[in-house]
Design a protein around this nucleic acid. Sequence first.
DNA 1: CGACGTGTTGACATCGATGTCAGACTTTGC
DNA 2: GCAAAGTCTGACATCGATGTCAACACGTCG
Lengths: 342, 342
Amino acid sequence: MKVVTIKDVAARAGVSPKTVSRVINGEQHVRAEIREHVMRVVDELAYKPNAFARGLSSSRSFLIGLFVDDPFSGYAADLQRGAIDQCRMYSHHLVIEAVERERPDWLAQIDATLRELRLSGAILAAPVCDWSEVLELFESHDIPVVRLSPATDPGRAQQVQIDDRAAAREMTERLIALGHRDIAFVRGHTAHGAAALRWQGFADACADAGITIPARRVLQGDFSFKSGLAAGEAILADDDRPTAIFASNDKMAFGVLMVAMRHGIAVPGALSIAGFDDDEISRMAWPQLTTINQPNAEMAKVAVDLLIGNNPQVKKEPGESVELSYSLVERESSGPVMNGMA
Amino acid sequence: MKVVTIKDVAARAGVSPKTVSRVINGEQHVRAEIREHVMRVVDELAYKPNAFARGLSSSRSFLIGLFVDDPFSGYAADLQRGAIDQCRMYSHHLVIEAVERERPDWLAQIDATLRELRLSGAILAAPVCDWSEVLELFESHDIPVVRLSPATDPGRAQQVQIDDRAAAREMTERLIALGHRDIAFVRGHTAHGAAALRWQGFADACADAGITIPARRVLQGDFSFKSGLAAGEAILADDDRPTAIFASNDKMAFGVLMVAMRHGIAVPGALSIAGFDDDEISRMAWPQLTTINQPNAEMAKVAVDLLIGNNPQVKKEPGESVELSYSLVERESSGPVMNGMA
DNA sequence: CGACGTGTTGACATCGATGTCAGACTTTGC
DNA sequence: GCAAAGTCTGACATCGATGTCAACACGTCG
């Protein structure tokens, strides 16, 4: 198939290649009349600029990198979907890179990628956004970065996030309003910024309501389904059970739910369960999980906006963060405390 | 940060840029002594060739495209993981593109991507691999393609697949060996090549065993969890129940399982359930699902091998297909027919 | 009326690699 | 011992766009 270059367009339109370039890139200083004419020719020839030539000459790559820890997860998939959509809007492309931290040369690998690809920007998903070595690497390459999810060491780059703490607090308050006073909490992965915030939100609400949470009601998980199972087993083993369990994410909540079912504990009759994330799994569970909806795809979109910087609506100073709104989704796994139990 | 170019390496090594280029690309006709020396300098300077310059001058892009229908799915995530790993091995990069078939300009979008990016190769996941318009587009651009999963209209490009039909047959035979003779089947999405093959495998096994499957035992699904729920409701509504249900994928099997639990039907005591894919969900279910393991990540790896063509072990003639092996994973959701029921 | 911005356009160099091709240097064969 | 063939190496053009800068066409202002 014949390749159409900018010269072909220029020749056909009777202008110089540079003028065509100006039109393509929406630069000013082109007479409206000529601009329209060139655009018409571009359409006629279905001309698309060669990304490599563009990248080489302008040292803008039109590539956005999405750096994730586990491309497996539904979380990563949500991000991708949002990011791809938005990249396409700005005629950029998305490159997914897995950060394999277990490898000794993991940093060198990222470094190599950055040198080769000259990314226009990068989105760091949790928990990659919390690894300061990575941040430094991007800084040294002068590549704009957006971090998703609250992170340890905030303010080092732009962020897009929800208010995890407030969300966890709201969920806890809702459980308390349903009459629960003996609530267990399953914490998330310690290295993950959001885990701490969710825990704080839970603690805030309990403190406000004058509820003291004994240590045995707090379980350490790592956001995996498996750790949810373990937490469930630990807390539902004997008859000393809480009336509600709030897990830091849906996968763990789902694990707890599975244990409850195995033990024949009615949910939400005898036990309310709440999660966080509005993961696909929360809708596949039975009963469906009450959870916090976090707009992941939307967050990725905003991140792309920030990086490409074409959207004045989300234009921010570097270092500032954008906060999107969450919502509490009340489904079937939570309900009022049974009479005589509280 | 200072950028290291091929000239810097050449100057430092006391050779011409072209010679460095030869070393980098593993071309022959370089004295072993010089080759080693250059490689040492490359390491010292941590030189990485600029992907854009390379792409421009050689018209090889070092980019592999992965075209998926739904980047949301766990299936897509598996593929990505495998593909990313393998791309990195060959110092290529992976670009994910979502094919949004609901948009009127979906083909033009792909076309635009191909013109801009000059992909070195493309992997078409199911069900994209079954859309002949897409195949034609790639052919017209002369871009090598590997199709994953059995497809309608086979032989038009290289394929990587498992023997879905044999796998479904094996699963069915296993159920029959457990004493089941009244087995329901939930079919997959009609547009998906694998759906038909899995159905055939099921039919094969039943025919061999002299079992006739009445029409009311065959449900039409679309591979979604929701359609699994619907199929479950349809088939478990009254007392005329089969002793086993084989769903074409795990999501649907999980849906069926949820319905069974809601109805208080013991699994596998009163009802065996089998799925297909070895999706993450099959391990999160309780009881865990018996299923067929399909090596998705491995399939994506092989696809990359085929495209880059550096791996003689999987070197094939164009049009030939590579078949990987599946395995039946027997978990907790299937068991022998209860006495007196069959 | 000429000096001076401002807006518009194109010529030409440039980005950093690789393809081509010619030339130097080795080996092989008779 | 010399031609032919093969092996190595580098000079230079090239890929297709954009950056720079000079030239030119205008109004406008003093």
